[in-house]
Design a protein around this nucleic acid. Structure first.
Lengths: 279, 279
DNA sequence: TTGAAAGCGGTACCAC
DNA sequence: GTGGTACCGCTTTCAA
């Protein structure tokens, strides 16, 4: 008969609420909205609402949010932020998209496997002179990707060189791609650190009149929505971003509701998406 | 001395809180994360936290969130959702990215001007046989874009045809582009309803061996991050998404704090970004 | 089974 | 000024 309980009063007495916090490093990076959608979907289906915090690699902002959260009796937090704050609070905390040894709960993609997949794909399509882009060193996933790719390349005795990039920021992509072409004179394959960089490299390659994939082949990482809209379609490693968010939210809700969690650390499988940028 | 007031208790007595709700139609559409970032930035700087609701054109979901919000004593809502719910609640409500006559407060881009800009640009680059894509009819901004473009085309006596698309959903883009090429036999220009569709049309054009911009020129709408990463670079109309979010949050907070609002309806200016997809 | 009362942690008001 | 008290709306407990 039109009555809805006041959640605030309930929350005051219970010292908990039906709210969960979501900490993201950069919502304008196209990977995260998908992840956010996954958590929002699960939360919504289970009567939780999600509070968004964009912390952009800023530990102060992260602390501020954690403080906010406790003032609001938030009952759990999902964090994809790269800060390494240890969870000394009693609120359930699950890490998204990265797994630290010390932390208890996390959902992430097996980046090492992803890197291997990328390396294998390039080898199979006869990459002879390979550039592998290394993402920022402080991002653990980027390191795993790199080491995965290199392990495959080394095992095959392939010839490669590593190109360091210090950021994943979108607005640095074009610049970085130009620098890549300027520093390396000849190569026939590039393993990019993500799709945005792969696109930038593709653009620069076409500009310089190289044919893709005949002269230069490129593989990306992420499988963003628009990677399929490119011409040629970008071959890439798909990360299950939505699933990371959805399963992360599920794990967090289970934690909040004190259900038994079988796997504290879950790794999801990346997948090779074959399109047209590899020979 | 380490004391932080409990916001829940305060909120219970005050019947209001430092939380604002943000309703988005589709967070995986790259336009919205930028907008969300704008609101998050302003909110955070002013002590508010934002609750995210992804309502995907679903009126029930929207109602559910509005109900949730009132249960949590949320003090204002920012809505970019396309539902036409009238604001019979007493909570401050500001519309983002669309302005309805009946509603009081809104921040949006001047889509009619954007449409005109697109039309003019195509005319200036000698479009003779133009396809203009109409976005979903229930999205008011899409209508304004269309009417703006048509007004310019009509005034110039240009030859054009309208192609209806019933959704802005990303995963329908390729299909829609194919349909466009199948229904219209010859044309030399397309004014796309957004960048995602522009990209899809570009891809389909290249696939079918048309040169861009020589045979077919294309203009988009939005200026997404990756539009510059295409080859050729996409000429498009930039929407100030971040600014819409930021100013919308400012207006909402002013409303909540009962400051005087000078302009109830603010229109931001779109801008033509010249790249290489127009002759 | 049902109803009354206390408490969650603040704010606001009224006496003193 | 300052301290005490009622109240926000719900949950829980305890008594009738």
């Amino acid at each position: 008969m039109g009555y809805y309980p006041n959640e605030v009063a309930r929350s005051l007495y219970q010292k908990s609420s039906k709210m969960i916090g979501l900490l993201l490093p950069d919502i304008s990076n196209p990977y995260f909205p998908l992840l956010a959608k996954g958590v929002e979907d699960y939360a919504q289906q289970n009567g939780y609402i999600v509070i968004l915090g964009n912390v952009e690699d800023n530990a102060d902002k992260e602390d501020m949010y954690v403080k906010f959260f406790s003032q609001y009796n938030i009952s759990g937090v999902l964090s994809a932020a790269s800060g390494k704050r240890k969870n000394n609070d009693r609120v359930p905390y699950v890490l998204l998209d990265r797994a630290l040894e010390e932390e208890n709960y996390s959902i992430s993609t097996d980046d090492r496997l992803g890197g291997k997949l990328a390396g294998q794909a390039v080898l199979e399509s006869r990459g002879k002179n390979i550039i592998v882009m290394a993402g920022p060193r402080h991002v653990s996933g980027a390191n795993d990707r790199l080491s995965g790719a290199l392990s495959v390349l080394n095992a095959a005795g392939a010839s490669y060189r590593v190109f360091e990039t210090e950021t994943f920021q979108v607005d640095k992509a074009e610049e970085t791609a130009q620098k890549l072409f300027n520093t390396f004179k000849s190569f026939d394959s590039v393993i990019a650190s993500n799709d945005v960089f792969a696109l930038a490299v593709m653009k620069e390659a076409i500009k310089r009149k190289h044919r893709i994939p005949e002269d230069i082949q490129i593989i990306g990482y992420d499988d963003m929505l628009f990677s399929r809209l490119m011409y040629p379609g970008l071959t890439t490693i798909a990360q299950p971003a939505y699933e990371v968010g959805f399963k992360g939210a599920k794990m967090l809700v289970d934690l909040i509701e004190k259900k038994v969690i079988i796997d504290k650390i879950v790794k999801l499988q990346p997948e090779l998406i074959r399109r047209d940028s590899l020979r």
